[in-house]
Design a protein around this nucleic acid. Structure first.
Lengths: 143, 143
DNA sequence: ATCGCTGCAAATTATTTGCACATAC
DNA sequence: GTATGTGCAAATAATTTGCAGCGAT
């Protein structure tokens, strides 16, 4: 468990709420979660952390580079662990299911399109919105 | 002015607020506008339409296929006239400036990436977020 | 005349903030 | 001990909705 160091390095005291949130993401139970989803996960494990704290912690982790924030369609911010490996996302507009992918060709053309127009790309992140055709298209829960 | 027909075809009565909103978009003054921006534009022209009506009208136009809604980073929906010609967007995270582009290679790979993972793409729309390096990077107004 | 439309104000949803108390170091 | 962090409740921001009256056909 090297989490406390992560927090230290970010200049954050290692408190219970922070450790709980971080290990939830590291547990891999769900890679992509909104603040509300993190909140419910923790409640269901008996750990009750205030929702406002979750919002604060998620934002701090984002700034510390521990988490990445996405603003997918649907109005809620969704977070995922920053594991250093760049990838993009395909998001199901029906159920919110997120799948990750990487395509070097898209990366290159994305860079080129931006450069040609005088934009400089920060993180190359891009999202495709589609309908997941799987039979088991679950509902709104697993964003 | 063939606007009333557009509305008719969509099963919408041709009312003043609807005509005002539609012609604002058709005037080309700004291609991409949020509800609030449409509201302010109309107020500034002396046409006072309720903000709630703007929201209703924009949604109806979106459903009628007259407008396209985008949920760019930043929490507000932004609308543009649907002119039938597909294109993607590069959005400046600093000032909200939007530029349009089209890259056949990206389209193809986007389709492929989705298909391989069992997703079916609706409209192929995708957005790149970047920093517009132009000297004249304007402020929050021209989203 | 009828049914749809509009404006206003109140409701919702996601997120932020003020403040008194609790906690890490 | 002191600066930080937390919980709760109230504040914001974007958008939606209920309802009584207005307007298009």
């Amino acid at each position: 468990m090297r989490q406390p160091e992560h927090l230290k390095n970010a200049g954050l005291k290692s408190t219970l709420p922070r450790l709980k949130v971080l290990s939830l993401f590291e547990s891999g139970q769900a890679r992509h979660m909104s603040a509300e989803e993190v909140y419910k996960h923790l409640l269901s494990t008996g750990d009750d952390v205030g929702l406002a704290t979750i919002y604060r912690v998620l934002t701090q982790f984002e700034q510390a580079g521990l988490l990445i924030r996405h603003n997918f369609e649907g109005g809620k911010s969704v977070f995922e662990l920053n594991q250093g490996t760049h990838h993009d996302h395909i998001v199901c507009l029906q159920c919110g299911h997120v799948e990750e992918f990487f395509d070097a060709g898209i990366e290159a053309r994305q860079e080129k399109a931006a450069a040609e127009r005088g934009f400089s790309i920060r993180d190359h992140t891009l999202s495709i919105y589609a309908d997941c055709t799987k039979a088991a298209c679950p509902n709104k829960t697993q964003i």
